[in-house]
Design a protein around this nucleic acid. Sequence first.
DNA 1: GAGATAACCTAACGGACGTTAGGGACTCTT
DNA 2: AAGAGTCCCTAACGTCCGTTAGGTTATCTC
Lengths: 198, 198
Amino acid sequence: MADTALPAPGRQRVLDAAAERLVQQGYAATTLRQLAADAGIKAGSVYHHFASKEELFIAVFNRGIEVMVEAFDSVEVADPLERLGAHVRAHLGALFEHGSYTAAHVTAFFTAPPEVRAEVVPQRDEYEHRWNDLLADVFPDLPAGRRPLTRLLLFGSMNTTIEWFHLSGSLTLDDLAAIITSQFIDGIHASHLIRSAR
Amino acid sequence: MADTALPAPGRQRVLDAAAERLVQQGYAATTLRQLAADAGIKAGSVYHHFASKEELFIAVFNRGIEVMVEAFDSVEVADPLERLGAHVRAHLGALFEHGSYTAAHVTAFFTAPPEVRAEVVPQRDEYEHRWNDLLADVFPDLPAGRRPLTRLLLFGSMNTTIEWFHLSGSLTLDDLAAIITSQFIDGIHASHLIRSAR
DNA sequence: GAGATAACCTAACGGACGTTAGGGACTCTT
DNA sequence: AAGAGTCCCTAACGTCCGTTAGGTTATCTC
């Protein structure tokens, strides 16, 4: 009995397919029949692994946060400002280098129905809390009440890169992370000195 | 012969409903039957005003850009840095103060099918071009090749405010615009001096 | 007042959707 | 060898979707 050329188990293949479809189509337009076909099984068989479409996508969104948290926690840098840059780089890495789950989360979370979003909020909060603590650590002068807003502005810049950045371009992810970090800390006058356009 | 309590004509009411539904549900989850009900007509009657669902939403997305362009062009400020701040404020105004069309565009554009997006790209390009010119004017030292990236980072911060900012909160839109502008120009160390948390 | 046009209706079409019931094949445990 | 559990299948259900054909009413034009 030869190999079936489908290495990963069925449940995992469905999740992978869901993450990729989510990025390009959003929640409502991604159908179970598509995911089943992508994973090499039939639509009804999806229900062997997941109780419903909602539960399936909750798993995808949560995995997306897991990837971000793992990337965040893998950073070990002493110098505060350098540490911030490393975390920016890690977040972008989660978006572009560790599968589609984080990208799916960032692009499709707000297209999911409220019941699905509600199940994912606690994990999101945990990740946001890590960033608030980081900001408190790196910028002791930043008022505590200002941290969430500051974080949201930075997240806005980082997360929307999935709409236009491509790893295949001339700009590397390291470059992008350095530019975003510099822009965030010192503003436009400093950021464009990082690496001139060619 | 009393008034029908539905002032706007049918086509306009359908467009308004579409913009609002788009913000909360995205493209695929917004159905013509919903829009018809919102507008006080029947589903089939939508086809008197629009040839297809796609055409309807193209009109909504284009109107979203129109609102942004009108807000942009209404700015008349001499001082370069002040002008930038006024444009940031105008962009946020388009998002929050001039109906749901711009918000619908920003949140749902990437949830629309490719054929719909393709029809809207020229108008998007026009708006982006205005911003590139503005950046060139305000920051002559910024390399020309760097303008699109810089604009995308600023757009990322501004556009994702629709995911968390509410006019009813304690932070005003003027405050938010000032913070974003300061953060963009001078970075975090300057931005938090604009207005301390209370 | 005849004719055109606009704005809306009813009723239905084919198709796709999430979901379910019930069964077959295979592996592991005892 | 029996039983349980895992993984997947076929076939169908009720529902909703975008869209269309054909009809009604009211207004405007000449």
